[in-house]
Simulated assay, not measured.
Amino acid sequence: MLLNVVGVSCKRRELIREIQAQKLAQALEVDELEIGFGLNQELGLKRPGDTRWSSHYKTLLNVMDLFSTIFKVLMIIGKDGSKSEDKCKAQGIFYSMEDQDIINATRLVSLTKCQLQKMREDGWEIHLNKVISFCNIHGIVVPDLEACYIPHGRSKRFVQQVTYRHHFRIDVFIEIIDLLLQEFNNRFDEVNMELIRCMACFNPRDGFSSFDKESVLKLATFYPSDFSSIDLRTLECQLDIFMEDMKRDNDFQNLQDISSLSMNLVETKRDVAYPLVFLLIKLILILPVATASVERVFSGMTFVKNKLRNRIGDQPLNDCLVTFIEKEMFLQVSDDDIVHRFEEMKTRRKIN
């Protein structure tokens, strides 16, 4: 649907190019991107092939890189599209891309890890039979699995003497699954999964069907500086009244995400009535932004702390990072204001 709506016409593809070119020009202006041969190539939403899975992967990578640009294009089509059908489709895609069901996401992660582990333990023979069947159909020679493995293009002296069966099972099949499991564990460890599960308990979808009081209280314990032992007891009392209030009020029955819940709480002044509950919701909403901000800082350090500034101190590094990361705000400050601020400081030499 995304490809049909956004990439259906030359005009919309050109709109993607223009928006992406503007972003690229701004990034190059502030030295956020490196310049060189083959870098910063133009990206587009190429339609993937039905039988070439690598094309699907490349399309997904382009969607990730063009995510903010696609959002802008969908908003333009949704507001100013020439056809009402395109407007409805653009709005539907926009909201479906924005919506993130945390509960289903965590469940899918756990199920995927279980399936990979199950495949590692019991899936070798099934996979091997499929591969042999495929090779027989297409006339591909299958080596004797009990024969000694002979590597292509490498000397036998540097390869362990094993059979083809051992090589394909241990060095290929199991090793790839272990890499996938390790990547899942690095990105979704038990602490992060527990945190996400607790956060999902505030999801207002389907009349707060996923709400769990104990999980919400456990989430509050992750913020000891914001919730003391007395605050936790108060929060426990507030939660009972809060949920009863939410279930009785029709304005809170059709909400789809936590951000909508927080806005409704402010509009109805319930953020004042349930201050600790609202504080916890704010912390939930801030967490993804705070995480992204930290990653952004570490990405910025590769540009700020380069070879020329390799021995820079902590305070100068911090100052340089602030101006680099918040460059959009600092670019609005004129040079005259900076000079005037510098002159108003303690005694310093200045050019008259």
Rank of each mutant, 00 (worst) to 15 (best):
L239W: 09
H56W: 13
V8M: 11
L261Q: 01
L28W: 00
L74R: 02
L308T: 14
L180E: 12
R13K: 10
V141H: 10
F202C: 00
F211Y: 02
S82D: 10
L287I: 03
I140W: 05
F184D: 08
T51G: 08
T302M: 13
H138S: 05
K350D: 04
R311C: 14
Q238R: 09
M301K: 09
F303V: 06
L3E: 04
I176H: 15
G78W: 01
T163H: 02
E295L: 05
S55A: 11
E267R: 12
I286M: 06
F184T: 07
M263V: 05
L111P: 01
L181M: 09
T51E: 11
L331M: 07
I312H: 13
L179I: 15
L317C: 12
G139I: 02
N306F: 12
A273G: 08
V289Y: 04
D171S: 14
S225I: 11
M75P: 01
A220D: 11
N352H: 04
T323K: 12
L145A: 07
E183W: 12
F71T: 14
K46I: 08
E194K: 09
M345H: 03
E85H: 10
V172N: 13
L61N: 13
Y95N: 06
D189K: 06
D335H: 04
E326Y: 09
F303P: 01
K23A: 07
V63W: 04
G92L: 00
I230E: 15
Q161V: 13
R205H: 01
I170T: 14
E18M: 05
K156R: 08
R248E: 14
C148Y: 04
P275A: 07
A273S: 14
